[in-house]
Design a binder for these strands. Structure first.
Lengths: 195, 195
DNA sequence: ACCAGTCTATCTGCGCATCGATAGGTTGTC
DNA sequence: GACAACCTATCGATGCGCAGATAGACTGGT
């Protein structure tokens, strides 16, 4: 087979694994679960990811890379801090559309002590990427007069991120109330967002 | 052994199990882990909790009851909405002291689809207990002029709870930054909390 | 004698992981 | 351009240990 097909299979395994992680957690799916879904044998998955930890690492690394790409796209498409933040919120909350899936940060944080150091490091990187970006948007937005709040912009950035992660957990428990507004009230309160 | 000792053993099993759940998740500990810690055999644990699900249910039911007791204590000890909220926040954030342990809500939400209906129902009850109480405190605090915010008090209550759950996930990933203020900046922003 | 509580022994099934085999593509070299 | 040597991707079989769970025997208090 061609190398391109190899890559496709690797990606396919990660795709399915990511679905399992986001719905059930990293410790609650097996190579057998993956194999059944993909219609191959578990031994074939071991060929690409010798240890489950290798799969976990590949998973979160791709997730981080995708996320970085997504926020770079936002920066390219939108100039206003308000629109950039809106786009970010939409992306984040769409992730948990209907409460089916969680952000990997939430899942891996819940299981953190059972995960390898390499994966824990990636979780930290994901957080920092998000906070740095939010900090930019929030402080730019304040300078431009879109938002007003007291204190450090980094505290606001951190609050937004924590809120979003917690909100995903809540939405999963109450999937019915999925018809929520574009901008959660909490965000308006945190930023004194007008309009 | 005396019935009182029976009860003691049951509680002891729940104690140890709760520790495991809060640190590693419900799917990442076994009856063997419990048995080793408690210095009994796994069969003895099955005597009290025939299925792991029975243990999980007992666990969260006790947790909910404890929590309800704790907020009733707060209401008895404090009259000012400000002090009541402070006490609640302290209780909540002390729970994750150093990031070692998570609130059961966060853990069970992360693993939700792998849990039984009975446990999922308890998770919902826990959420509603908290939101109802926070709603009371927040709306009383607004009437009394301690807090000021626009919109529904229930949205603020919900935002506080989501923030706290998310904040616990974040703190677990960054245990170093444990020297945080009594009232998180996010809460001050949400409520326009003065003083 | 009874009963609660604990034990030992054991079951079945699944967890991750490895091995060796095989079918087919790729490459090198004469 | 043919053949050997190698590489890629997959497989079946299997190992070892742990998972939750149960049956049945022991023990000590009343």
């Amino acid at each position: 087979m061609l190398p391109s097909e190899t890559k496709a299979m690797k990606e396919r395994i990660i795709d399915v694994a990511q679905g399992f992680v986001q719905t059930r957690g990293f410790n609650a799916f097996s190579y057998r679960d993956l194999a059944e879904q993909i219609l191959i044998r578990t031994a074939s998955i071991h060929y690409y990811f010798p240890k489950k930890d290798d799969l976990g690492l590949a998973l979160i690394q791709r997730y981080c890379a995708d996320f970085e790409g997504a926020i770079r796209n936002i920066d390219d498409a939108e100039r206003s801090p308000k629109n950039r933040l809106s786009a970010y919120l939409k992306m984040f909350l769409d992730l948990s559309k209907g409460g089916a899936r969680l952000c990997l940060f939430a899942v891996f944080s819940a299981e953190l002590p059972t995960l390898s150091e390499r994966i824990q490091d990636e979780v930290r990187i994901f957080y920092e990427t998000n906070i740095d970006w939010l900090n930019d948007v929030v402080s730019e937005g304040r300078s431009a007069g879109f938002f007003s709040f007291s204190g450090e912009s980094r505290d606001v950035a951190s609050a937004i991120f924590s809120f979003l992660e917690g909100e995903m957990l809540v939405r999963r428990v109450f999937p019915a109330e999925a018809h929520s507004p574009e901008i959660p009230p909490a965000i308006r309160l945190l930023l004194s967002w007008k309009g």
